[in-house]
């Protein structure tokens, strides 16, 4: 049972805030956002204007970036009753977290095959990619099936090549598959479809949704404990949501919005919320 809770508040007087200072910024910028509990089986949308610090928040939540403050937790959480040290962070990332970045961040010095096998040592590229293709043939609708299968077959053909030769979309697909096959309970995704065409984007959206209920095509390769529930924390933009896709529906029973605001020191300490954006979130909600 995974439950990650960040009891964050707006006020700086309270010690339980997230405060991140950009190392090379001349202005004392700080990011803050509302208190947050992240629960299993939920998909969280981190939304905000460009440059507001969405990725930073995601990185802080996913333990990829340090910050001024502490992680707190309750007894049911994976982070128990003390400040997390680096060793625990490694262990949590290894056992529970998975990532899809805005840029694919594929390791170019490894082959395509190694890029996948490095995150899951039980993953046998040749054998399991064939299985994935078989599954895709059975679950995906006819319209995009052929295209998807072709893309994955392309990856398979390049298994012993460097990912240098792959296109941006293919790299993003590889990055997505890498995140999906890694044993995890929480996927952190930062605009995972940035370089993808519509077909791939829809496939990714669908699989992320199915990840919550463990029905995605990659589920069997993750080898997770059946009792653990999954969570997705994703950065998206409002314009990316349409009525005909899953994220556009934003059903409140399984989906939450995390609005991110920006605190500007130059404005006499007042909170400068991006009101417009928040209102638009509210409308969607």
């Amino acid at each position: 049972m995974i439950k990650v809770i960040f009891p964050l508040k707006k006020t700086f007087s309270d010690e339980s805030y997230i405060c991140f200072e950009y190392p090379h910024s001349k202005i004392d910028d700080k990011i803050t956002f509302d208190g947050l509990e992240i629960h299993p089986k939920y998909l969280y949308n981190i939304m905000g204007l460009n440059g507001v610090g969405k990725s930073t928040i995601l990185n802080i939540l996913s333990l990829l970036t340090g910050f001024n403050g502490n992680y707190f937790k309750d007894k049911d959480s994976i982070i128990i009753n003390h400040t997390i040290n680096n060793s625990n962070k490694d262990s949590i990332r290894h056992d529970h977290f998975s990532y899809i970045f805005q840029d694919p961040h594929i390791i170019n010095m490894y082959t395509v095959k190694e890029n996948l096998e490095i995150v899951n040592q039980k993953f046998n590229f040749s054998k399991h990619m064939s299985l994935i293709i078989d599954k895709l043939n059975s679950v995906i609708d006819k319209k995009s099936k052929k295209y998807l299968v072709k893309k994955i077959c392309d990856l398979k053909k390049n298994e012993n090549n460097s990912p240098y030769s792959l296109s941006g979309g293919e790299k993003q697909l590889l990055s997505f598959i890498r995140a999906m096959i890694k044993p995890s309970n929480v996927i952190f995704a930062d605009e995972p479809w940035a370089s993808m065409d519509q077909n791939l984007k829809e496939f990714v959206e669908q699989q992320l949704y199915l990840y919550l209920v463990k029905k995605d095509v990659f589920n069997e390769f993750r080898d997770n404990s059946p009792e653990d529930d999954n969570t997705v924390i994703i950065i998206t933009h409002l314009h990316q949501h349409k009525d005909n896709n899953i994220f556009g529906k934003l059903d409140t029973e399984w989906s939450k919005i995390i609005p991110v605001t920006h605190y500007d020191n130059n404005d006499n300490g007042k909170l400068n919320h991006s009101e417009l954006e928040i209102e638009r979130y509210a409308l969607i909600k």
Binding site: D90, S91, R93, H94, Y99, H105, I107, M109
Partner: peptide, 15 residues
């Protein structure tokens, strides 16, 4: 190798 090491560490391989 910063990128490689960062990616590897991101997926839980410790120092």
């Amino acid at each position: 190798e910063f990128h490689t090491i960062g990616t590897i560490r991101c997926f839980g391989y410790n120092k």
